[in-house]
Design a protein around this nucleic acid. Structure first.
Length: 159
DNA sequence: GCCAACGTTGGC
DNA sequence: GCCAACGTTGGC
């Protein structure tokens, strides 16, 4: 089992949005960076866990945990001319943009802020703190466990 | 809104 | 294949 971190701008799609999505699931569309795509396409496996990170907002932070429930999905937005992520060069027979589907597992309380992670020497090696622009990134098991030790899962309200 | 970091594009 | 120009990300 591997661990990841997925960034999303909460103004467009927040962890709360994922929690209230049908079946708490979404296809992680719109990634247009090759390194991020390669991670999703080649390295992620079903049942891996990922932190859901809120970027480009007032308090950048890890807001929750989600699970990779399906891999190898051709990003549908690449074929949609109306989408901001449309890519005319993506061929349906050989899709350029491959992504995954994720499902909300639980929110975290408290959220773990970027500020807090920067100050934490146990997390100095995190990709988030060193290659901050990569929107899909690996998290080591040590980093994962450390972050989880600083917070608690919020049980889902219904289920 | 600024700007540093850095990924992508395209001319040569 | 280099690299300058340009565009985007994302923290502040």
């Amino acid at each position: 089992m591997k661990y990841w971190l997925l960034k999303s701008e909460p103004d467009s799609f927040s962890y709360e949005d994922l929690m209230s999505a049908p079946e708490k699931r979404t296809v992680w569309d719109g990634v247009r960076n090759y390194q991020a795509r390669n991670i999703m396409r080649d390295d992620m496996a079903q049942d891996d866990l990922a932190f859901f990170y809120h970027s480009s907002c007032k308090e950048p932070a890890i807001a929750g945990v989600c699970r990779i429930i399906r891999t190898g999905i051709a990003d549908p937005s690449a074929f949609d001319p109306a989408s901001a992520y449309y890519d005319a060069k993506s061929d349906k027979a050989n899709p350029r943009w491959v992504t995954v589907e994720v499902e909300a597992v639980y929110a975290l309380n408290p959220v773990i802020t970027l500020k807090q992670m920067r100050k934490d020497s146990a997390l100095a090696g995190m990709v988030l703190l060193n290659r901050s622009r990569l929107s899909v990134q690996p998290v080591t098991e040590q980093q994962w466990q450390h972050i989880m030790s600083l917070t608690s899962p919020v049980p889902p309200i219904d289920e």
